[in-house]
Amino acid sequence: MATELLNGFGKVYLTIDYDQANHWVYNNWIGYQTYTGIISGADACLLPLQQQACAYLLNDNRQVLGPWDHAVEWIVTDWGVRAAAQGLTHFAHVVSPDSLAAQSAKAMLLGLEGRLHLRMFSDMDQAQAWLREAQQQVVNQ
């Protein structure tokens, strides 16, 4: 069952769902993202990752409006450290390529480099294929 987080206006800004068939957590971020909303949402997605012993995150920013540079440093120095420590290894980040959110995602990618396997995609099918390939490599080891 998906978790929905609401902003101050009572609108859903994030849904978090564990996809049992694919064994990954799917985050769908929607609209403008505040610093406190990003912290609450990112922290909330750690719970299903931990509960399911899941190493794979599919983060969808295609519906995000505007940049979220204000939270990149926190994601890199706080959230990313905790996520990796609890077992997250692969992070597929889907964006609209020409969006301001994509620029924020590039900064995050650079900051998390070396800590997680993180790739940015403009196509959901490609992101899912990358996660499946990573899962298959673990199975084949």
Rank of each mutant, 00 (worst) to 15 (best):
L100G: 12
A42Y: 11
S122P: 04
V12C: 12
A127F: 01
F91E: 04
M120W: 00
G111L: 11
N59D: 13
L46V: 06
N22Y: 05
D98H: 12
R62S: 00
H117M: 08
G66S: 05
A134Y: 05
A21Y: 06
V138P: 05
D17T: 15
A83C: 12
G114H: 04
A83D: 11
F9W: 06
V95G: 00
V138I: 12
G37H: 02
D17I: 11
L47A: 11
L116M: 06
Q103G: 08
Y35R: 14
W68F: 15
G8D: 12
A92F: 06
Y56D: 10
L57I: 02
I75D: 08
H70C: 07
R62P: 00
L46N: 09
L65G: 04
G41L: 04
A134W: 06
Q136E: 10
T36V: 08
L88N: 07
Q135T: 10
V64N: 01
A2Y: 07
L116Y: 05
G66P: 04
N28Q: 13
P67C: 08
F9M: 07
A107I: 15
D123E: 13
F91V: 09
V12H: 07
G10E: 00
N61C: 07
L116N: 05
T3R: 09
T15A: 07
A129F: 04
N28D: 11
D43A: 13
W79I: 12
N59L: 05
G37C: 03
L14C: 08
D60I: 02
D78Q: 13
N28S: 11
A107T: 14
R132E: 10
S99K: 03
Q136F: 05
H90C: 12
G41K: 00
Y32G: 07
S122N: 10
T89C: 11
V94E: 02
L109K: 09
A102R: 00
V12M: 11
A84E: 10
S122F: 01
L6C: 04
R119N: 12
L109P: 01
A85G: 08
F121Y: 03
F91L: 15
G87C: 14
L131I: 14
G8W: 00
A85S: 14
V139R: 14
N59H: 08
A84V: 07
R119T: 05
L5Y: 03
M120G: 00
Y13F: 15
V64G: 00
H117E: 13
A55Q: 14
L100V: 04
W130P: 12
Y13N: 06
N7C: 01
S122I: 01
R132W: 03
M108F: 11
V81M: 14
V76K: 05
W68D: 03
I39F: 05
L112N: 07
H93I: 09
A101L: 03
D123N: 07
V94H: 03
F121R: 00
G37P: 05
Q135C: 08
P97F: 00
Q126K: 10
L6P: 01
L5I: 03
E73D: 10
N61T: 02
D125G: 03
Q63K: 07
A102N: 07
A44E: 07
D19K: 14
L100K: 11
D19T: 10
Y56S: 13
W79D: 13
R62L: 01
G66K: 02
E113I: 03
R119L: 10
V95T: 10
D19N: 14
Q135R: 12
T3Y: 04
C45Y: 09
T3D: 08
E133N: 11
K11I: 01
P48L: 13
V64W: 00
G31H: 03
